[in-house]
Nucleic acid binder design. Structure first.
Length: 233
DNA sequence: CGTTTTTGACCGGCGC
DNA sequence: GCGCCGGTCAAAAACG
């Protein structure tokens, strides 16, 4: 299972409300923050598609669905979080999935429902809540989202075009961290990629900021994602 | 020849 | 204030 400390070295925890992992049992993990975000992820081995992000103001209740990805014959999971409350998933008894509505002030779960795993076929396996430190005013940060993937390749194809602008060896690790910026004009989104010190088979990818444009697909790519974008926007 | 990568320099935040 | 550390810059090299 994942521990929170695992990620404290990799990203700012101040806005973190929880994390989830996908697929279940689970080489992939996302951070859920109050300021972002909800990633929309299709996962297929070495390819990860982050298709869209839901703006924070998106006033919507939780909507989770799992649909087959026609290209990859693997499940695609949709998660939408938004509105005044953050909604989240939790696996409590095995094979039972629950979502809770979360009070942003207290981080307490104020609603809780459960439903059967098979009925809804969800891919989210766990979520854990963490209290937000609310005291000190801090510098506004671009929303961040990070996950880890078991992968031989460092840079996963996410549909966007990136230019590397730096590389750094970080303390107590043998693998360097790489810094990328989105090549689109006026788009300031960055990502960084590194291997997990404790397990170099794992790649950690962190995105920062929101794209001001849609992915620059390579020809074949657009069908599924545009359908899904239509669904969401 | 335009674009991307490489890589040491530079810079700012933070702890001491 | 100083040194460490992580993030970014930018000139040169590499790439296609």
């Amino acid at each position: 299972m994942f521990s929170q400390s695992l990620f404290e070295d990799h990203q700012d925890m101040s806005s973190q409300l929880g994390f989830f992992s996908y697929p279940p049992n689970c080489n992939n993990m996302g951070i859920i923050s109050s300021t972002t975000t909800l990633p929309f992820i299709g996962y297929n081995q070495n390819t990860l598609k982050t298709l869209t992000m839901i703006p924070p103001s998106f006033d919507h209740s939780l909507n989770i669905q799992s649909t087959p990805d026609p290209r990859h014959k693997e499940d695609l999971i949709t998660t939408i979080f938004g509105g005044p409350h953050l909604l989240s998933l939790q696996k409590s008894p095995p094979n039972t999935w629950a979502w809770g509505e979360v009070n942003n002030e207290s981080s307490n779960i104020i609603k809780r429902r459960e439903f059967d795993h098979h009925e809804h076929n969800l891919g989210v396996s766990s979520i854990k809540m963490k209290k937000i430190k609310s005291s000190s005013r801090r510098k506004v940060r671009e929303p961040r989202f990070c996950f880890k993937t078991m992968s031989d390749v460092d840079v996963l194809d996410d549909g966007y075009k990136w230019r590397k602008y730096g590389q750094k060896v970080v303390k107590n690790t043998q693998h360097p961290r790489s810094y990328y910026r989105c090549t689109q004009d006026n788009c300031r989104v960055k990502k960084r990629v590194e291997r997990l010190a404790e397990d170099p088979r794992m790649v950690i990818t962190t995105y920062e900021g929101r794209h001001v444009h849609s992915p620059s697909h390579d020809e074949e790519d657009s069908q599924a994602s545009s359908q899904l974008n239509n669904l969401l926007w």
